[in-house]
Each structure stands twice: as C-alpha cells, then as structure tokens.
Design a protein around this nucleic acid. Structure first.
Lengths: 162, 162
DNA sequence: TATTGTTATACTCTATAACTATA
DNA sequence: TATAGTTATAGAGTATAACAATA
C-alpha cells in the first residue's frame, strides 16, 4: 500500500507520475478520499479485533432505530436491491447480531431486529466508529467538518437531481 | 432506483426511517455523496451512448500522460494490485483503446499506450467528464469547490496517516 | 394481480498464491 | 534471487430474472 517508488528500471517515469488534471476533478478527489476513509475504517476495526464494514454498520443502526422494519424498507433505505440484501442479512444473522422475525401483520415480510448480543456489539461498534471519525478529521476544525458535510450534501443533491 | 416510498403496508414505518446519528457521520455522508456522484457519472456516459467507469477514465488519463509506463507503475499509481489491473487492461485493449507494447529496455514489462482511437475517445470522454463535473457541483461556487477539494484532501491525508 | 423474500446467475472489483519469463 | 505479468481462485457488492408464499 504505502509502498514508495523505490529504484525501478525507468528513470524519471516511475519516480513521479504525471497525474494531469485529475487532482482538480472533484469526482476523483472524492473517490480517493472515500477510499482512504474506507481503509481507515477497516484498519480501526481490525486493530480492535472486530470485523464490520461501513455498510454493515449503517444497516445495524437503521435496524436498531427502526425495529421491525421489513427487508424491502431496509433495502430502499440503503439504496440497494432486495436481492442484494439477502446475503448481507444472512451473514449478520449467522453472526448472531440480527434476527428475521415473522411479521404478525403481513405474512410476506420479515420483521428485522438486532439480537441483545447485536445491540451490545453495536454499542461497541459505535465507539469504534467515533474513534475512526475523530481520526479521519483530526486536522479539521469543528467548523470545517460542518462545512465539509454541508458541501458534500449539496454535491449529493446536485448529482441526484440530473 | 429513484423509486419513491409509494403506499406500502406499514403505516409510519416505511414512510420515513429514523436514521439516527448517521447524517452527522462524515464517513457516511462521504460514502453517499460518492455513490451519487458515481451514479451521475454513469448516467452522463450512458446518455451519451458511451461506456466508461470513473476508474477507467483515471487510468486512461494516467496512460496518456505517461506513455510507456509499466503495469506495475500504473497499478501502484492507482493503488490496486497488479493482478487486479490485468482484466481491466484486457477490456480496454479489447475495445481498441489501449495497447500493451513490448518494452525495448526490459523484457519483463509492458509499455502501455493509448491507441490513436483511444486518444480520440479520451478527448470525448474528457468533455463528458467536464459536463458531469459541472452538474455535480452546480449549486456550489468556485470558492466552495476549492474549499471542498481542500478539505477532502485533508481528510484523505488524515485517514492515511493512521 | 402485486408484493416480499429467496434463489440462480452474472459481472465487476478486490485480493492472495503460484506460475513463467525475464533480469 | 527478485521483479513483471498472468492465471487460478475466492470473497464481497452489485444487478436482473424467475419462483413460491402471501396479500
């Protein structure tokens, strides 16, 4: 990963690539920042001996805050297809973090909920996410973080409105 | 995709999910912005009858700006494994956009270059990316875009330094 | 008929390990 | 020995299409 150029065969080429206009493209900068943040999330959890992806964390928060919601509702909230959700829930359920209960009102749907163990795990995960969030913005002031979030939400709205 | 809630069975649940603390988490906001920007990129290209991912665009720019670079150097610049790069190059080569030449100086390496057709295509792609970039930041001032890029680069540095 | 969850299938991105050819 | 590129393989994320159960 953090591998340095080192001495390779091509002098003057391998040393420093010409990245052209890329560093000024918002989409490119955004993608690279996201990638670095994702890696930091993974290493934060790995260091703590926990295994969770940002997507799984978001899913668990959604389930905890909306006990009994259906897979369709969850998939819609996550912006993914219902078929994509199935193996993700399978994994969390296999880990004992989450259960699919039978809905009492609609036989077609499952009522999702965290298990007691899943609730405890989420509390711990939330602390880890807090530490991670602190790290990825350690050189930003509170005002800068607010600004960044505001601008990112505007970009999201702009990107979606077309 | 842009599917609206519609009328579902669970009143008060499907209508509006409680997202808890997620909207204030930088990592979450970043991920959703990135996802929306990615979708906008795809739809911009699809509308124009072109097919390209942001990653392929970045790759082509890197090759054009650094003619003759090796797959290892390119993989390193992209932050991916050399084995990951192989099928990506295969596809671009199959489309006639890029070639692997034999390096005259080192028999182990390939010297990558865009074909004339690839160069022309990249010029067109670059115009599409320009339009896309304009759209995703249409409600931001020039100063705000600069600020956003600066803050994202700081976040990237913070995320990598741990 | 329409919806929910599941399965089958496929494609992309990602990696590790082992192979080959070269250095 | 070490490096570059390839292949084999595997896992995660994504989707579409078709199916069974239920509404």
């Amino acid at each position: 990963m953090g591998r340095l150029p080192a001495k390779t065969a091509s002098p003057g080429l391998a040393t420093k690539l010409d990245r052209g206009v890329l560093p000024t493209l918002l989409g490119y900068v955004l993608r690279r920042a996201q990638s670095a943040v994702f890696a930091n999330f993974a290493s934060t959890f790995a260091t703590a001996g926990a295994a969770l992806t940002p997507g799984e964390f978001g899913l668990m928060v959604l389930v905890e805050r909306n006990i009994g919601l259906s897979q369709m509702a969850l998939a819609r909230a996550l912006g993914i297809d219902r078929s994509t959700l199935v193996p993700i829930l399978d994994r969390l359920q296999a880990r004992g973090l989450l259960v699919r209960r039978h809905s009492p009102t609609d036989g077609r749907t499952h009522a999702l909920a965290l298990t007691p163990s899943g609730g405890k795990a989420l509390a711990r995960f939330t602390r880890l996410v807090g530490a991670h969030e602190k790290r990825i913005a350690s050189s930003l002031s509170t005002a800068e973080i607010r600004t960044l979030i505001r601008l990112l939400e505007k970009v999201r709205a702009d990107a979606r409105s077309v």
